[in-house]
Design a protein around this nucleic acid. Sequence first.
DNA 1: GTCAATGATATTTTT
DNA 2: TATCATTGAC
Length: 779
Amino acid sequence: MNNRLLDKLNQEQLQAVTLPSVAALILAGAGSGKTRVLTTRIAWLISTGQVGPQGIMAVTFTNKAAKEMQTRLGAMLPMEFERSTRSMWIGTFHGLCNRLLRAHYKDAGLPQLFQILDSADQLSAIKRLLKTLNVDDEKFPPRELMYFINSAKDQGLRPHEVDAWDDFTRKRVELYTEYDRQCQREGVVDFAELLLRSYELLQNNEAIRAHYQRRFSHILVDEFQDTNRLQYRWLKLLAGGGAAMFAVGDDDQSIYRFRGAEIGNMRDFEREFKVDNIIRLEQNYRSQGNILNAANAVIKNNTERLGKNLWTDRGEGEPIRVYESSDDIEEARFVVDEIRALTQDGTSRSQIALLYRSNAQSRVLEHQLFSNGIPYRVYGGLRFFERQEVKHALAYLRLIANPHDDTAFTRVINFPPRGIGARSQEQLQDAAKANQCSLYAAAPLTPGKAGQTVANFLRLIDQLRFACEGLTLPEIVEQVLELSTLRTHYASEKEGQDRIANLDELINAAANFIAEEGYTQDMPSSEVASSTNTPDADTPNTNTTIASTTTATTPQIDINDVTVSAPTSAPDALSTFLAHASLEAGEHQAEQNQEAVQLMTVHSAKGLEFDVVFLGGLEEGLFPHENSLNDKGGLEEERRLMYVAITRARDRLYLSFSQQRMLHGQTRYNIRSRFLEEVPEDLLKWLTPQRKSYGFGEFGSFSRASNAPNAAPPSSFGSSGPRNSLGGLRIGQSVVHARFGQGVIVSAEGSGNDARVQVNFGREGMKWLALSVAKLTPA
DNA sequence: GTCAATGATATTTTT
DNA sequence: TATCATTGAC
């Protein structure tokens, strides 16, 4: 490896990269060069001969991160190794588990061509289950049940291991059992199952476990703070043979607790792996001092931290700009005005990000940007493989690979409409249930007229499979679009042009998949076989035609006196492509408008950086979100979110909040976020008259900048004189209460002695107060 | 069996 | 305010 790569590192980075081969935990703050450390570490291990490429496993959470690591590594390693990056196991948890299960599907108890359910598929599978079992979906909402099942799996719990302490939970456990049974019958696997299944594979099969434990002497994990219980156990199992685990993460940036992430894993890792080497990367190369100090000040309010303080040598930079607006529209106007000024001064639009807590907030911003002709791009919409037309096409493809895939079957049995309505489908379901078989298999057993119409559909499936034999993948997709009449169906729809374009894009995607990386990457490798023969047996299979499902006899291979069934022949390109489609839903949006302002939630901004960041909606109830205020953990996670948001900014940060905001078609009155209060005053520059602290306990004194209750921004329209007068108080008015502190009047009723007002006290919640009793003074 | 209207419902998101 | 899902009418 090029030694200059090491020269570029700072002291701590260098130390981390060149750590001995034992367990290590790298606490990498935002912008501290985490990815660089991770990739350089791998390059260093390989080029110093400590390990061969096949001994490396690197796990990430997103495909994007995996790809980036792969690319960077390719550039770092000298030619002789570059080719072998392919034999490294670099990928997402799910991608790697998929690889493992494909290679050992038999031992994992799966059909060779098992399909992967994405969350939408999973939800419809659950709905279908509830229907066949005649379960009241009012009592057991499918979404809630899905969450229940997934969180059990995320913790590594099979139904019998779940603690059921009441009837309700017992019933849910029972449904969990049935759900798993259904999946097994259909030969499909959901995301969580991918992990759990491969965990169990390793745990129950000593030969396989020993093989991989021996193979991977170095396991590197990115974003370790986001691992869930099961992922941690999976890693622990794999590393059980003495592999050196190199975990990189930042507990302050853990923002996925709601989907099972356990920060506790960091502490457990430290303890269970007897980690002596904790290295803190605290030098931030991204943000200016004021921004960093603000972030530090906010996160300091969290307890339960591993501890870390970012610093920079970039200088203080500009103060953080704070803006208070009367309503959300005005806030958006302000943002747009600033953007105009910024771009006029030469700031690139793509270097400006508008961040918000929840997606609903993007609308006002979009509207304002749009009417001012400023190009923008919103992240987080529907992704390519999630579009309905694409999902329909994929369902047909899945039926070619496996006609017993009931999820795919129900998706397209009547799409495009072919006269198989709810009634017929019900009969089909019944027949399938009675015979304990797939819908496909049940069709011939279905009585009456329903059986007839369904038979036609079966013929279509068979016809598809027949027509596709021997074709290349893109040709198959093409065939399917024609024979299923999907294309003609959308052609006759008024808004169908975009959809057809997407279907064409699917053909493209298939072609690319074959031509480029995809296919070779996800190829199951002849793992077990390889260890006894050539060291690098992950030979890409370039066979692009559908092999008519060959039930290859599994050769028995002897490893250290243990007989393990070797992976069978590669499944066909179609199945691999389908797995790819589930695992990698595709880029958020195709149009990469380069010069556009970037809009996204704080969550999706993680890992990104921008010269200028606007963070809006800093209001109690919104950020921190009201749903997360119930427990302390929720609030701390919100604070980490705030931390992530702040640290996205390189040079300039705007924080804004609004007294009034439209939410779900109703006007809400809010007080400013406690997180804003947590930023030291001397880092701020108020662009609107400032009302100092709120009555949050420790802040004793109240002061105000202007007598105007609303401190309306100078430019503003809107709330001028007091309307709805109630003894000097009005809706939207900020008030102070001796016990509850600062609040905003949200609504009022009654008059005279009966007059009551509803006040939003933020942290203290919403209260109805009688004016004759409560002492409310204008703030 | 299909279509239109109504009504509930509403963080955050990757795989 | 929008979306979605389910209901009710043809």
